[in-house]
């Protein structure tokens, strides 16, 4: 299984408006960044070179792992997508 191919086997109806908004300046000062490795959909990427966190909500599985592991209150918004948007499991 290749996580880069998540869109090949899990369906999404992506909302243009992100349901999670991150204040990435807070992530720069984080001593842990457990979100990067813990997110099962690899939505978080930390660039050591740029000292910068990037977050993409497109493949978010709405599991809530980042919401629980973040101890920096880095989210300016964390909610579920609007009704009808987001991940759509067919038979799991």
């Amino acid at each position: 299984m290749n996580i880069d191919e998540i869109f090949d086997n899990t369906s999404f109806n992506i909302d243009r408006e992100p349901h999670i908004v991150l204040d990435t300046t807070i992530c720069t000062g984080c001593d842990n960044r457990g979100c990067v490795n813990s997110c099962p959909a690899r939505c978080y990427t930390w660039s050591e070179e740029d000292q910068k966190m990037t977050f993409v909500h497109d493949g978010c599985l709405e599991c809530g792992t980042c919401y629980v592991v973040c101890h920096m209150n880095a989210f300016t918004r964390w909610r579920y997508p609007r009704g009808g948007f987001g991940v759509a499991y067919r038979m799991t």
Binding site: M1, I6, N9, T10, L61, C63, G64, M91
Partner: peptide, 9 residues
């Protein structure tokens, strides 16, 4: 063959 990948808390 992989059909679906999912996650939940």
């Amino acid at each position: 063959k992989l059909l679906e990948y999912s996650a939940h808390l």
